[in-house]
Design a binder for these strands. Structure first.
Lengths: 156, 156
DNA sequence: TAAGATTGAAAGTTCAATCTTT
DNA sequence: AAAGATTGAACTTTCAATCTTA
């Protein structure tokens, strides 16, 4: 029955629905953020982390770890955000190799003005549609698969 | 209680888990496909659609619609796949504006040799971990949100 | 004018290499 | 040598403009 690597019909349907949801949802959030706040979803996530950090500043390695981004992606992205005045870079006193990424005043304004509408979109397309048990199931499913990914990364 | 756009704690947790899963899962599938078959996940999806189509050929607009890609993204992507010999382009007899994208022999070999291992990865990180009711919940949740996205696109 | 499709430029991402400090 | 971080080149995606045929 389930010999071989293949998915059965129900799994296949769920998998394709998941992939489609990913694509459409992220595209939609990107489009809306871009139109409303001139931010990409990636910009938004960077700004959220920084705005939640003490003193609006983080070390790049911690930010990369938090976002699950490669360092080089973060470095390029911060360079672009810096050009736009959303973040700045400062030297790190305690560690000569390191640096601080600091949220600028404009960066804080940007995230504070973008967040309500973005949250409203997430709520309206996702959480307004889901029951409490749907939300619990989503959380449980994501954590199971994340655990599987971590395990199989550890093996590899 | 739920005034304002904000998510409550449970929603917030589920949302961040979903975003993290997306990032890690797609990164993992891309890495594995690249290592095992020298294909990106995007290549893989294009090849799957073509291999399921009659005669291994589709019109670009239909392929773009199926993948939910912008035409221009598809056009650039097909150009790169064509350079690598995975697909070819042919003129379309019935419609002078149009074209056919055709799976080459090498393209078919590529998808047929990549598919078992890719399916095994999806199974091992996702479906081996989920109960039948998890799979049903995942499918239901995705379809609810996709419906919400379609509705709110229609309004906009 | 609209549909099917492509193009070029700009923005974003990955990979390998590099640089400095620990 | 390893950790923190950046760089340059190649690849991918988006956006607006364009071209041809219906």
């Amino acid at each position: 029955m389930t010999s071989g690597p293949w998915l059965d019909d129900r799994e296949q349907r769920a998998w394709r629905a998941y992939l489609r949801l990913n694509g459409e949802l992220l595209a939609r959030l990107n489009r809306d953020l871009q139109a409303d706040a001139a931010l990409s979803l990636a910009d938004y996530h960077v700004l959220v982390r920084l705005s939640e950090a003490d003193d609006g500043r983080m070390r790049p390695y911690a930010l990369a770890d938090d976002l699950q981004w490669e360092q080089s992606r973060l470095s390029h992205h911060l360079a672009r955000m810096q050009r736009r005045g959303l973040v700045s870079r400062e030297e790190c006193a305690g560690d000569g190799r390191g640096a601080w990424v600091v949220l600028t005043r404009a960066g804080r304004r940007a995230i504070e003005s973008a967040a309500p509408k973005h949250a409203a979109t997430v709520r309206s397309v996702m959480f307004d549609r889901l029951s409490a048990s749907d939300v619990a199931a989503l959380d449980r499913i994501c954590r199971k698969v994340l655990a599987a990914l971590d395990e199989s990364d550890a093996v590899a």
